[in-house]
Amino acid sequence: MFRYFICFFTLACFSFFVYANDNHSELREEQNIYGKIYNAPLHLSGSSKVTSVESLYSRKPLIVALVFTRCYGICNPYLLQLSENIKQLQSNTDFNVLVVSFDPRDNLKDMTNLAKQYRLENNRQWNFATTDSINEFINSIGFNPKWDSITQQFDHDALLVGVNEKGLITKNLLGIRTVDDLQLMIRSIHNVFIPSYRLPTKSNIFSCFNYDPKTQTNRPGLGLLFVALPAIITFLIVIIIVIKSKRAAA
């Protein structure tokens, strides 16, 4: 028993080293939580009227994506991932998506072309927009792109912002993320209280539970096996004793 335990243990340690990764994204994701998003006037593609961010989030909670159409970098894969993730969701109609350009050069035609690129121009869940109050809008989120005049590109994060029906930012997601993380964000924009979460810095395989936003429950982790192990080993010891004393009697 003990030998197996040691083998198992070594294996577990090894896999930990393989999977351990270090990033401090969580730190910046915590920015501007419960702050109000700036109610910027929006020009939506496919519509001539001026609308506002408030008129969008007061209808349904909102996921805001910040892009610029001339981006050579992360904007395209990140929008693609978002649209794919949303397709994978089982119920994906209880929120809207707002894609806003933070580049003053972008006009409505650019945004319409971007929507067509993903075949989302007729999808009513998705809103592609430009705004005249770029600075106020991105400051209220804590989004801080830097213009690089040599490459003629913005140096920026891939940021998704979750906004609830009151216009409060409930969660940010940095970088290209999985559908599970997106679920967590959707839960938060619907005001579901999550009493705790793990820091992503130590993706430790010995954790007892991993929160699964899909089922809204905690999935048992390997650590839970360790908590149950004393009872299991005791049970085995008793069985061994019984078998041995039976043999001795026979």
Partner: peptide
């Protein structure tokens, strides 16, 4: 392991109180 292997604080707390 001199810091290469890190335990999970929650697991350890559960086990310590189990004991």
């Amino acid at each position: 392991s001199h810091g290469d292997f890190v335990n999970d604080a929650l697991l350890m707390k559960n086990l310590i109180y189990f004991f």
